[in-house]
Nucleic acid binder design. Structure first.
Lengths: 212, 212
DNA sequence: ATTTAAAAATAACAGTGTTAAGTTAACATT
DNA sequence: AATGTTAACTTAACACTGTTATTTTTAAAT
């Protein structure tokens, strides 16, 4: 059955077919459902053939998630055109949370799972490319808001501000993704928790928070 | 070799021996090193015998973590004796962060990994027992601070306050545990991130934050 | 037509959680 | 005291997993 000698484009097509199959399983059934055999079956290949396109499972998963990290970056990019630095910042945060909560499996893989430390050289994402790198976008958004003077004067390091906000928003998303159904916790509604977190950040960081 | 008919105490001893062996692997090598065979070997049992004491691996791991959740609760308990509600609250948070960062594997298991939703009936932790249930302790600490009037008057729901603070602190811990070594992020020092997060929470929630 | 080598499949290995079927030995009963 | 019962444990085995080695297929190159 091997029609021999595939063009680079054809090889790339198989690669993305594999990634699409993996993503399908990943999104709907979670990471534990993504077995090499299951992925292979979906595209009519044998499991071992996947190793001709990815060195191992970890690399396959990373490739899938990388592609969606870029999608996150593009979703966030749409907020960069907002003129007002504060509004831009708020929309940025909201898009981030929305991505996390509508793509819990991707979010889990990106930020909630243990990985061998990411080697930027191996990643398909271009670091510091503001089109692809959501982190550098965050730094940019916060820094511009900082230059616009929206933060308290005592806050002198926009990177530290950004990392603090990220952590706060991440905590919100991560707890929800993992523990939303935990009978132990009498969770307040997701909306009110989001609102409360945003307000805490605003009052905690802004010079004179505009309450809306 | 089976000396037959074990007393309940002896059976309990084996149970804890299993849990100790699992914990040892768990702490030092992470969850993926905790295989039934490895645990069994450590106590000179065969792997299948573990199933006489735990219905499955998940239950074993949960038992190990539950025991340490209680240790967390006891660590936090020491702060409850602090008279000043604000100081009690601050110390509580600091102990929480310290536990998370010195027990990353336990913390990961508790709050950062996907579990079948926790059935309080099956847990060894007594819910709402303030000696064991760290979450209800958090609610208590925040509520008492709220009654003492340290929070902004606009904040009317101490449970929502508590969940917001928890999320913020969790984000701090979780990102550090998973991404501290990520070359992608130019992390500020852990100390300054903790400090920044605390200050953001204080300024964001307190009526008139005492800056120390 | 024969060789070559790329692309795939099959077989197989080592490891996993887990179940089924034995084995051993302390106890209860006759 | 001999016998059976059964708790405690082990060994075999199953159905998976990721992965490697080997083999097959087949289009192209000679």
């Amino acid at each position: 059955m091997p029609p021999k000698v595939k063009t680079d484009a054809e090889k790339q097509a198989v690669r993305t077919a594999i990634m699409d199959a993996a993503r399908e399983l990943f999104i709907h059934q979670g990471v534990q459902a993504v077995t090499m055999r299951a992925v292979a079956q979906r595209i009519g290949y044998s499991a071992t053939s996947l190793f001709l396109y990815f060195t191992d499972k970890e690399q396959l998963l990373r490739a899938v998630v990388d592609a969606d990290v870029i999608k996150l970056a593009q979703a966030l990019k749409s907020t960069l055109s907002i003129a007002d630095p504060l509004q831009r910042f708020l929309q940025f945060g909201q898009h981030y949370v929305q991505f996390a909560l509508t793509n819990p499996n991707h979010y889990r893989m990106m930020f909630m799972t243990q990985h061998p430390p990411c080697d930027p050289a191996l990643s398909s994402i271009e670091q510091n490319n503001p089109e692809q790198d959501a982190y550098s976008m965050l730094i940019g958004v916060v820094t511009s808001a900082w230059h616009a003077g929206v933060f308290k004067p005592s806050l002198t390091d926009p990177v530290l501000i950004a990392q603090t906000i990220w952590a706060a928003m991440h905590g919100l998303c991560a707890l929800h993704i993992n523990l939303a159904d935990d009978a132990w916790i009498n969770w307040r509604s997701l909306e009110s928790r989001i609102q409360a977190m945003i307000e805490m950040c605003l009052h905690g960081l802004m010079k004179e928070p505009t309450h809306e």
